[in-house]
Every structure is written in structure tokens, then in C-alpha cells.
Design a binder for these strands. Structure first.
Lengths: 200, 200, 200, 200
DNA sequence: GATGAATGAGTTTTCATTCAT
DNA sequence: TATGAATGAAAACTCATTCAT
């Protein structure tokens, strides 16, 4: 088996174990055994447990980003484009539940890995921020910092919704996508006009 | 020092260590040393590492809930009430950053503790769901399940916003509260009327 | 409650715990709790865990010796005397199962306590040895050393029989006593004449 | 060094430590150090302290049984066969003093291990019981249960004699074997005819 | 006299990591 | 390249023992 193929297989297995047990509690022995390789092989390929974990995060994050980018061109701010991206995001959650769980777990972490995931998240939030700042409302209510904050709120809403969905797998993806789309559009619309009676 | 006081002190220290390192990576030795007590005391008081962690989660979750409940009466769905709750939530994040980090971390966890935190989260989402279902929109667009999903999205938005704020501590709490309030109100409003051109 | 009475009560409880778990595995906490006293009390009364154990061995051993001595005068080598002693021995096993188990356990031990029990055992063996050497056989086949060995064999037979009996509690004591008496008499008789064809 | 060889070496060392200190008081550290291996090896090979102890008991018990079986064919009830078995038993005690001490210690124990040793003992007692029931006495005095009891008494006599011998190592094995043979034959003979004046 | 509270020392066990082959 | 075998370091937890009151 060529190295590349074996690496992918190992990452699959590792993701499964990491998703179930968490980084600390996932034993390298189990990963090696399940992958059908020896432990030294893991170290030859990935250097360390940390390296293996990072490689997995990197791959999962890359896959997620790829899907988002391919779902709609970067500049596309149409409703159709938004819906497409949301749908792809949920498709990723559905098809790579392990990957999603690991990525999401690290959002709450403070360990070195969290940084990599934070970057990924920041890139997605950044795209949303641009949408906020260029959304066709009459006037911008909040300055740039606020847009960043709101963008993160939108991202968080999506994550939370995705996890809620993992507990309700009977719902079709498109239904959940509709809901999230509605949330996003509402927030975008809401940032275009100040709430009635708002002091600032 | 009376036992109750010392227990609280230990929980403070434990929260700090747990927030920084995570459950698995937090050594009981360090908690004991930082708290100025011996390890056996930790076990006498809390039974096990798991017991200590649960006690901390319980305390932090209780404090958060207390604040939310005291911020505004349960039935109160006014904007002022919402703002008050949001402000209290962010005050908790600000004043109990450790507690918040630990609670938030467990949202992504699969361990036994996650259940306790999920309960806490569910209670908050439930309150929001009721708000959605009784919000004064012209007609209800989505059925009960959707309301639950949207409620979780709102909760997730708040969590994400809170974490974003932890990285931008220079912003005053009330500013962030305003933003979150705006998000919540937008979503509530959005769920009262379907998006234009929505198929369903 | 007077000290003497409380000491006895503690010893009863301690014996129970020691018999079940063994010396090493018996926690002082459990003994204290079961006896309804505080741990420092145990140390005030018995000095240490070792002290408590020794006190228990001493008491149990003394009780056993007392019974044997009272069953028949020391010089009495009649069959009735033997039967009486055997009966008392088995009565002790029956009534003080804990004490018996602890004493017997220590026979196999190499720890400091074993010495105390070995002494007890030696005293009993010594009495039997004298019986062997003065038993009314025509001539003494074996010298003094052999008599000592045989005496220990007889003691061991009794111990083993007693333990076997603990697993067959439905048998009346007198039945088992008869069997043991038969064994002892057989061996005594056997030592009076060499086996046919024995070289020495 | 091949694994099999090292396992045997570890068992030798473990037996030594167990014999001296007892199961509870024997630290794995000491066993590892004396065996010249690391502690994790002990766990790789034997799984746990209990596993190591069981492995040792199993080996020692197997060796003892082997010797007894090889000493004389199972059905052989001749005096020569008996003497041969006794001699082998004592040879085991002499050559594997550690093994003997550990096995004998567990006879008094209540832990899970005791069961394994009880089985071994029961197998030996069973063989003796059959000898009793088929011994060429004129008539059987005691029923089957008694034969079982007497068999255990004979086993106990041998154990006790063996331990006595460990304290008198200057005596040649054959001498002690003769004594035990005499004891066994006396008891067997005694069970063939009731004691004069026996009521039953 | 009695104890609630406290701990130093030690135990088993696990795991990431690395040689020798 | 690939691995069976090995380990250093550290973790959770327990227990006999002692003060301060």
C-alpha cells in the first residue's frame, strides 16, 4: 500500500478515535491497532500524537473549507449562494461527523490545536463579515468591530444548529439549511437598521 | 478554616486549572498544590477527580442560571427583560471566565459531564423557544421543532459572541450586549415572517 | 462505656474485618466506623494497626489455649481427655470463626505476627509430642525429633479438618471430633510400631 | 532474551517476593527491579498484579501436580507408590520453597486466588479419598463424607509436616518422607477398623 | 478523653515514545 | 521500511497515622 493511501486510512481511524474519546483520552495503541499498523509507523508518518492530531484537524478543516468555497464563488452574496454554502456545511457535518466533532471540540479548547481551528473559523467569519458590511441595507448601523462580532455570532449559531441536528438526525438536511438561512438573513437584515428606540 | 469555605476555595482553584488545561490534562497534584491543601483532602471532599469536576460544573452552571433568572422574571419577554438577561450572561462570562470556559468546553465534549452541561443549555434554549413561539409576529412560520432548533442557534450565537468577546476584552459589556440583543431580536422577528420567495 | 468493654468490642469488630480481608487489606477506617469509635481512639488503645492485630491474635490465641487447658488436665492422656480437648478445639472454631480464621491465616504468614501464632502452635504440638513419647506402645520407634514432627503433623491434620468443616457446617461437631480423634489415635498407635518392612 | 524465558525469570523473582512479603505487601516496583525489567513489562506480560500472582500460583501448582502424577500412576495404591508421591511432594517443597510458601499461604486466604489453590488441594485430597475408600481394611467404618474429611486431614498433616521441615532443614528428605508415610498408613489403617469401644 | 480534619508516603496502572532488529 | 519489545514519567487514588481543638 502506498504511503499516501495509508496515511489517509490512518487519519480516518484516528479521527474516529479522537471524536469518541477526545485528544487526551485517545490512546495511540488503539489508533495503531485499529488502523492495522504498528505504532512506530504512526510516529514515522506523523512524528507525534500532536502531529497526528494536527494532521487530522488540517485535513478536516481543509475539506470543510473546500466545500464552502466550491459551493459558491467567494464574492457571491446572493441568497442562492448563501443557501448553497449552508447546505454544503451541513453536508460536511453529515458526512464527516467525526471530523466535525473534532473540529468543534477544539473550538472550546485552549490547547495548541485550538489555534488552527480558530484560524479556520476566523476565515469563515471573515467572509460573513464582508457580507454584513456590504449587505444592501440603507445604512450601516455598527462599525467594523461589530460586524466581526456579529459574524462570529452567526458562525456560532450555525455550529450550535449543526450539533442540535446531530441529535435530530431524522430531519432532512435541507430543512435545517432553510432554518439556518433564515437566521442568517434575519441577522443580516437586522444589522442594516437599528432596533427601534436604540439609543446609539 | 471551615470546610465550606475551603471547598469553595478548592473549586476556585480547580476551575482555573480545568479551564487552562482541560479535564484530562489537569493534574490533581497541581490543583492540590495551588489550593494549598493535600491531595487526600481533594478526595475526602469530592471523592474523585470526576467528582471535583462535576462539583465545579454544577457550581458554575448554578451561578449562571441564578443570574439569568434573577435578571428578569421568567415570563418577561420584553426587550428590557431580554437585554437584562443578556447583560447578566455576559457579566457571568466576564466575572467567571474560568467557569464559562469550562462550561463551554464541555458543550463539545462526549464525556459523562457533557450531559450535565447539555441540561443547563437545554433549559436556556427552552426559555428561548417559548419566546419564539409566543413572539408577537403575525403568524408562526415554523413548527415547534424548528423553534427548538432556532433557539439552539440563538444560544450558540451567544456563546460564540461571548468567546469572541474574551478575545476583545477592551469592549464594554453593554456594547456586546447590545449586539447580541440585536441578533436575538432579528432572529425572533425573522421567525415571525417567512423570507420573501421562500418555497414552503 | 468503660475502656475495657470498649476494647473488647473493638477487638470483636477488628477480628471480623481482619478475617474477611486479611491484615494488609483491612482498613483502619472500616474498623473504626464499624466499631462506632473514632480512628484516634484505635491508636490510643492499641498504638498501631500492628498493635491492634497483635492484640486480637493474643486474645484469640489465649481463648483457644484456655479451652484446651480447661478441657482436660495437662497430664491427662486418656482417650476421654483427648476427645474432650478435640471437642473444645472444634467448639472454638465454631464459636469464634473469625478468630480461628485469623489465627490460621497467620500460620501461613511470614510477617512478625506469625511468630506469636507459631508459639501457640508450638505449645499445642509440645503437648502432643509428650503424648507420643509416653504413649503405651511396646517400644518407641522414632526419636524425639520425629515425635516433634509427628506432633506437628497431627496439629496440621486438625487444622485442615477444622477448615474442611467450615465448608461443611451441616455436620455436628461431635461427628467431626470423632473423626479427628480416630486420626490422632491411629497416628499415636502407628508411632508405637514400625511399619512392616521398614528398613530402620 | 526471548519472551518465554523472561517470563519464567520474572515468575521466579515474583515468587520470591510474594513468598517473603505476601501478596498485598509485595510491591510491583521491587519485583520489576529484582527481575531487571521495567514495571510496564510486568503489565505487558501479566496484565496486572493479580495476573502475575495467578500466573505464579498456576505454575507452582502445575509443577507440584506434575511431580505427584509422575511419581506413581494414578491407580497405584501400593506402599511404594505412596512413598514415591510423598517423596516427590517433599522434593517440591525443598526445591521450590517459594512456590510452596505461596501456595500454602493461599490456603488460608479468602481472596480470589484461594479458589485456585483450593482446587489443587481438592484434587490431591480426592486421590487420597479414593485410597481410603478402597484400602484393604476389613470393613469401611466411615461413609463417604468422612473419607473426604479424613483425606483433608491427611493433606493438612503433610502440609504441616512440610512446614515443620522448612524449620529443620538439616533433616534429609527421605527421613521426613518416612514419617509422613507412617502417618498416612496409620490413618488409612485406622479408618479400616473402628477404635475399640467406639459407639458407632 | 475524644475527634474532625489533615497529610506524607506509597501503590497500581497507563501511555507516549523509542530502540534493536 | 517496518515492528516487537521495552521504558521513563506521570497519573489517580488509598491508607496508616497525627494534630488542633
Amino acid at each position: 500500500m502506498p504511503r499516501e493511501r495509508r496515511e489517509q486510512l490512518i487519519l480516518d481511524v484516528a479521527g474516529h478515535v479522537f471524536a469518541r474519546a477526545g485528544y487526551e483520552a485517545a490512546p495511540m495503541d488503539e489508533i495503531a491497532e485499529r488502523a492495522g499498523v504498528s505504532k512506530p509507523m504512526l510516529y514515522t508518518y506523523f512524528g507525534s500524537k500532536e502531529g497526528l492530531y494536527l494532521a487530522y484537524i488540517e485535513r478536516a478543516g481543509g475539506q470543510l473549507l473546500d466545500r464552502l468555497v466550491r459551493a459558491a464563488p467567494v464574492g457571491d452574496q446572493s441568497v442562492a449562494g448563501m443557501r448553497s454554502r449552508i447546505s454544503e456545511f451541513l453536508a460536511f457535518v453529515e458526512e464527516h461527523a467525526d471530523g466535525w466533532r473534532v473540529l468543534f471540540r477544539e473550538m472550546a479548547s485552549t490547547r495548541p490545536f485550538a489555534e488552527r481551528v480558530a484560524e479556520l473559523r476566523a476565515r469563515i467569519a471573515e467572509a460573513i463579515r464582508r457580507m454584513i458590511e456590504t449587505s444592501p441595507g440603507t445604512r450601516r448601523v455598527y462599525p467594523g468591530t461589530a460586524a466581526d462580532a456579529i459574524a462570529h455570532a452567526i458562525v456560532g449559531a450555525g455550529e450550535s444548529l449543526a450539533n442540535w441536528w446531530l441529535d435530530h438526525p431524522e430531519l432532512p438536511r435541507e430543512t435545517v439549511a432553510d432554518w439556518y438561512l433564515q437566521v442568517v438573513r434575519s441577522v443580516l437584515a437586522g444589522t442594516a437598521s437599528p432596533p427601534p428606540g436604540h439609543p446609539g
